[in-house]
Amino acid sequence: MRIGAHVDPADPLAEAASRAAEAVQFFLADPQGWKAPVPRPDAERLRAAEVDLYVHAPYVINVATLNNRIRIPSRKLLLAHATAAATIGATGLIVHGGHVNAGDDLAVGFDNWRKTFAYAAESGGFQVPVLIENTAGGDNACARRLDALARLWDAIGEYGVGFCLDTCHAHAGGEELLGLVDRIKAITGRIDLVHANNSKDAFGSGRDRHDNLAGGTIDPDLVVAVIRAAGAPVIVETPGGAVRQGEDITFLRDQLGAEAPAA
């Protein structure tokens, strides 16, 4: 089981070493902006590294929305990030499930997701696996509640899309962690990555605020149980930089009986 952290993108491999991480996740561009990624001068070094690389797409991407001014640029930006992720040898591209606006038909949002993959197929498809992540808030979200997730997978499952399970988002979104992996796999058939995060806020709060594993409102043993059941690589997106994230990684290794990578 590969365990790592979300890190600063300037030098991901140095960040991995500082945390004794076997995997890292990072952004390739401003997570709150619409600019496409630019080529990285360290792309060859990243491709050759033994560390597993994951890219997180910008938060602004929302391919589900009925708003053309957001949906169409979102499709293009998601494709651009997948192409850029492939150049550095990334294992996957994580993107939030998105939402429609209040009063809009959620069914259209699911179909917009389907059209996103059809749009990508016209130019050869996504060059890395796209992993859709569950989200914490919003009554009109495509991947907060499992009933919505099932409808989403009915629309896009044929495209081989992957799934990223965030424990903070599930808890804050109102989904019990106990038995959650089985319920998700019954829908998606897979969990490709776990974002192991505690939550600063209460169950069902709808608020996306991560905490370190030993803090927050989630029993850390439940987070460990989710990881064990999922059997997927793990990324902590917890606060505190290398020191606190390193502690979270060590905690998970101790609980899961995993060995740290050789120095």
Rank of each mutant, 00 (worst) to 15 (best):
P233D: 12
R253M: 02
D219N: 11
A136Q: 01
K200E: 10
H171P: 00
H99M: 15
K200L: 09
L152G: 04
Y59P: 08
N112L: 01
L28C: 09
L222R: 12
C142F: 03
A225G: 04
T167L: 05
D211N: 15
A202Y: 06
P261V: 05
H169M: 02
L77E: 10
T87S: 14
V60G: 09
A202V: 09
C168P: 00
I191L: 11
F163T: 00
N67E: 13
K185D: 11
Q32W: 15
K76T: 15
P233Y: 10
T250F: 09
H195S: 09
A14D: 07
I70W: 05
K35D: 11
E15W: 03
V95Q: 11
A143L: 08
K115A: 13
Y159R: 00
F126V: 03
R183L: 12
A64G: 03
A57C: 11
P129D: 02
R45Q: 14
A90Q: 06
G125D: 07
K115T: 10
W113F: 01
L106R: 12
A64I: 00
F26C: 07
Q255E: 04
H96F: 09
E259T: 13
V60A: 11
L180A: 05
L252E: 04
G216D: 11
K35Q: 13
G103L: 04
S205H: 02
G246N: 06
P220M: 06
A141N: 13
H81Q: 08
A230P: 01
A232R: 06
G215L: 15
D52Y: 14
D208S: 05
H96N: 09
A225W: 02
L180T: 05
D139K: 14
G174R: 01
W113H: 02
L177F: 03
